[in-house]
Computed example of a mutant assay.
Amino acid sequence: MKKAYLYLENGQVLEGQHFGADGTVMGELVFTTGMTGCVESLTDPSYYGQLVIYTFPQFGNYGICHEDMESPQCQMKGVVVREFCEDPSNFRCDESVDAFLKAQNVVGIAGVDTRMLTQMLRDNGVMNAVITTREDKPDMDALKAYRVTQSVENTSDTKVQVLKPEGDAPYSVALLDYGAKQSIANSLLARGCQVTVYPYNTPAETILSGGHHGIMLSNGPGDPADNPFCIQQIQALFGKLPMFGICLGHQMMALAAGATTKKLKFGHRGANQPVKDLETGEVSITSQNHGYAVDADSLAGTKGVLRFVNVNDGTCEGVDYPEYRAFSLQFHPEAHGGPLDCLTAFDRFTDMMKEGL
């Protein structure tokens, strides 16, 4: 089997087996702890610009099912695993992970110590890395300087789409696409919402003139502070219609309200993150994928009220904005893959829209 190499920003080099596409890719090295959800994570736009370590040892056992894709293409730049399955076994399988990554031009490396790499990132924080099938050493200065940029621009759809549910559609929702997972639209459609998907750079006045009953702010990749235009539009939308934000949408909603965000040491990525509801005291297991978080202390003096916290590290996981008829969640209530403990958040959103009818 052909060799591949993983070069880390700290100078360490690991040799492994190549799978997927040939070539060299540079990105931010992160890890995810999910045991399932292979195709969902590969196609999640929140992973744009990143090389992803899968901590579960086996990868691709049940192959790729195109129906489960969260976007039209693989969003990761590279994949790092302990071992990958060349012959998947699943009645829904359309192709192997190796064939999928080759077609998507994504480089993979297997046979490396993913436990050691994960512990390194937990101790020292995420770092940049290169996966390559070539023998020559990459430009280490360029590697250290790498930063994920223009991520929302490169993952948002460029045209307006209208998605209609089966049967009656009592609600019309404007979904602002910052790199949206398909499961968000599907969750709204399942609740009788007609969903109009707008590109990230749509002005607030266009949204407000669309005759909608509510506004959905999607997930997406990168630093939320890199999107000043989007934040300005959210400011203009506050209080006009019920609003629900997830992940990046949650972070930018907080910035629009006057709070601040911060980069986490190694982020939350996986399907086993415990979150506590401060209002009810209940703890749910959630699916997450983010490297930034809202600074809970910065909510003081804003219209935002801290509602959810991460049980592991106490970071902000959700904010309510009662005066604006808005709320946001850092985690993914639609999951896929992962637990659906908090899927009722979409019911909360539709209830808010119903009150305004």
Rank of each mutant, 00 (worst) to 15 (best):
T280Q: 06
E86W: 09
E205Q: 12
D94T: 10
A110S: 13
Y48V: 09
I64V: 15
V130C: 07
E67N: 13
Q161G: 03
G267V: 01
K276W: 08
V13K: 10
A99T: 06
P224S: 05
N201P: 15
E28K: 15
Y7H: 01
I231S: 08
L51E: 10
E86R: 14
Y200N: 10
T55Y: 08
R325V: 15
E279I: 11
N289M: 13
S172T: 12
D94F: 09
L264S: 12
V79R: 09
Q233M: 12
A129G: 08
A335H: 08
F346Q: 05
K102Y: 12
Y200R: 08
D123V: 15
C342L: 13
K3L: 11
S218D: 04
Y324T: 03
T43C: 11
S71L: 01
D123W: 10
Y54C: 07
D341N: 08
V305L: 11
L8G: 00
G37I: 02
C193Q: 06
P224T: 06
T114Y: 11
F84D: 00
G78N: 10
C38Q: 13
L175N: 06
L264N: 10
A236I: 12
M26A: 03
A236Y: 04
A103T: 05
L340D: 14
Y5A: 04
V112D: 05
V319Y: 00
N219T: 09
D320I: 15
Q161H: 12
E15N: 01
E135K: 07
G27N: 04
K303A: 11
S209Q: 07
L143K: 11
E70H: 03
G281R: 07
R134F: 00
H332D: 10
G108D: 11
E28R: 15
I131P: 11
T261D: 01
Y7I: 00
N186G: 05
L51H: 12
L208Q: 15
E205W: 04
Y292H: 13
T260R: 10
R115Q: 13
V197S: 11
G16E: 02
A300E: 07
V97N: 05
A185Q: 04
E205M: 05
A103C: 03
G108S: 10
F91I: 10
K262P: 02
L208A: 11
D313W: 00
A204V: 05
M127I: 05
I53G: 07
E166G: 12
A190V: 09
T261H: 05
G192D: 09
A99S: 06
G179S: 04
N124P: 01
P57Y: 00
P333V: 04
T302L: 00
V173R: 08
V39F: 09
I246W: 09
T133H: 13
V294H: 01
R307A: 14
N10Y: 14
E15M: 00
E317H: 03
C85D: 02
Q330H: 10
F327D: 02
G60E: 03
A21C: 07
L6E: 05
A4T: 01
D123M: 14
P57H: 03
A190E: 14
G314S: 03
M353D: 06
H332P: 15
F19W: 04
A110R: 12
T133S: 14
L51G: 09
P170R: 02
Y5K: 11
L208V: 13
P224K: 02
T118G: 10
